[in-house]
């Protein structure tokens, strides 16, 4: 199991806001899971817990066999850097860097030289169909292209787990769809595990499993059996 949550509860504001209540969830390797729910339902909290950005008040979060609550701060940072790729609604690219430099950033932070990682950065930008935009800065790219750079960046450290928070929230309908197609293709081709938070039913429908949260609890779960491909 790639991600396991055992009886996880979390609260904010000294217990005044109960964000999650007794969540049990198993996510297998290679699954594309969408987490849906209204604002305040706890879906972003759930993503932050899996990313190790927040520790739960109760219960265990186990990612790739590691109990995140038992790791030291340093180990947790290292674990996240090597195993988790994050994709945000706001892209979060550095404006002064080119697309290629943004993509290479996670490994530059990890102490690798640009020379040794350049080929991988270029390969990933080709993978997200930005071959001719490698030297462009974020303000020279469309929203959809910026999100593609952010996806390539999330893949740079070869993280087996990708976490996306409303990845199409800032994009028009068609660009958003292209991003979702790309994410699903990456999950399948590169055997990644993807957890995506979204409030958009059309985005969620790209997943092979949809979990809906209401008031901090799982209120509904849907899955799909892959259809036989029709040419």
């Amino acid at each position: 199991m790639t991600v396991q949550l055992h009886n996880v509860s979390h609260e904010y504001n000294y217990g005044k806001v109960q964000a999650l209540r007794g969540i049990n969830l198993d996510i297998r390797a290679g699954q594309f899971v969408a987490i849906m729910g209204a604002s305040g339902s706890g879906k972003s909290t759930l993503l932050h817990l899996i990313a190790g950005l927040t520790q739960p008040r109760d219960g265990d979060v186990i990612v790739l066999g590691h109990h995140l609550g038992k790791l030291s701060d340093n180990d947790l940072t290292l674990f996240r850097r090597r195993n988790i790729g994050l994709i945000f609604q706001a892209f979060n690219l550095l404006p002064t860097m080119t697309a290629l430099e943004n993509v290479m950033l996670p490994l530059i932070i990890d102490g690798k030289s640009k020379r040794e990682i350049r080929a991988r950065g270029e390969h990933l930008l080709r993978l997200v169909q930005l071959t001719d935009r490698m030297d462009h800065r974020p303000d020279e790219l469309s929203g959809g292209q910026q999100q593609r750079v952010a996806i390539a960046r999330a893949l740079m450290n070869e993280a087996p787990v990708l976490l996306a928070d409303e990845p199409t929230g800032n994009l028009d309908s068609k660009s958003g769809e292209d991003i979702l197609y790309l994410l699903r293709e990456l999950v399948e081709r590169e055997n990644r595990t993807m957890v995506m938070v979204t409030h958009d039913p059309r985005a969620a429908a790209y997943a092979d499993r949809i979990i809906t949260l209401s008031d901090g609890q799982i209120s509904e779960e849907l899955g799909i059996v892959a259809e036989v491909m029709v040419s």
Binding site: R184, R202, E220, A226, E227, S231
Partner: peptide, 20 residues
């Protein structure tokens, strides 16, 4: 739930058609 499951099926079909 019925509509959401329907959307998953349609999207899956769309993904398969597009890919092939």
């Amino acid at each position: 739930s019925v509509y959401m499951a329907h959307m998953m099926q349609l999207t899956n079909r769309k993904y398969q058609i597009d890919g092939s």
